[in-house]
Design a binder for these strands. Structure first.
Lengths: 152, 152
DNA sequence: TCTAATACCTACAGCCGTTGTAGGAGCAAG
DNA sequence: CTTGCTCCTACAACGGCTGTAGGTATTAGA
């Protein structure tokens, strides 16, 4: 199977697959006489696994670990469990933070009753740092999950 | 005021302030005889505004718009309202997506009862794309909000 | 006056996870 | 033999910073 077909079947993009190979998440593919990458269904499975993990927001590093741990058949899955739990905590944390943001935004927006900019409550709220209720302690790093992000 | 003090007072980093100037979010600062940037309390206000917006997760482009709109004193604040509402929608969307992720992760994790990797339910769930409930339509782009992110 | 410490300057690389581009080469059909 | 698609490599760009290298300015103390 050529890279284009692998991309189509996995739902990803050609570039992304090459990128995964580049960073060692996918093994180097065998090449045809014309230097084109040749893939098997094993590769497809692996790409689907990665894609699925990405949808769960696992980082590529976490996925790398998962792939390695998953490969060691006899090992206890405690470590895998741990990575998943860690991800869950990240998600929970982020939800908390976003809920907080949401309330504040709603409050600010509902306080605006139109009129000219100089009297705009939204601008005022955003200017007035003192009344900030969304004190940040770092819950918002990017987390991704976007094969079809742009197309979405 | 020198850039270091502005950074301290705003809670940001020196580099970040220079970056904001570079991308035109802050006006070019006047320079001392020794070529050092000189700031006033106006600059501080502006940086605090930006910082506060960032805590709400507004993108720098949105902030650029807010700053411009906020400057046009006589204009109606409808457009500002619109930007805030847009941000609110983004936040709501992201929460929805994360809630979905959370349930799935919890389900997967609770299905794992230890044992060796080859029988690990987590790996199985992540492999089996067919049972994916977290169908992605692009709610997870990065969104940031991190002046003190690393320091958390 | 010299020196050491600090804060400042510019310019550029690096982070993540892709995506897009330029400039070629392979390959099947008409 | 040309068209048109896919493939190749190598590299730049995105957002929003952060960090580094290598230099200059300013200030405090001996």
């Amino acid at each position: 199977m050529l890279i284009g077909q692998l991309a189509r079947l996995s739902g990803g993009k050609v570039q992304t697959i090459r990128y995964y190979e580049q960073i060692g998440l996918l093994p180097h593919a065998h090449r045809s006489s014309g230097n084109q990458r040749l893939y098997t269904s094993d590769h497809l499975e692996r790409v689907l696994f990665i894609r699925h993990c990405r949808e769960f927001g696992f980082s590529l590093e976490q996925i790398r670990e998962l792939l390695q741990l998953g490969g060691e058949q006899e090992r206890s899955c405690a470590q895998i469990d741990q990575i998943a739990r860690q991800r869950l905590e990240e998600v929970k944390h982020k939800i908390q933070r976003l809920e907080c943001l949401k309330s504040e935004l709603e409050r600010i927006i509902s306080s605006c009753h139109g009129g000219p900019t100089y009297a705009c409550r939204i601008i005022q709220s955003l200017s007035d740092h003192a009344q900030c209720l969304v004190a940040d302690h770092g819950a918002m790093e990017s987390s991704a999950a976007g094969w079809s992000e742009k197309g979405g």
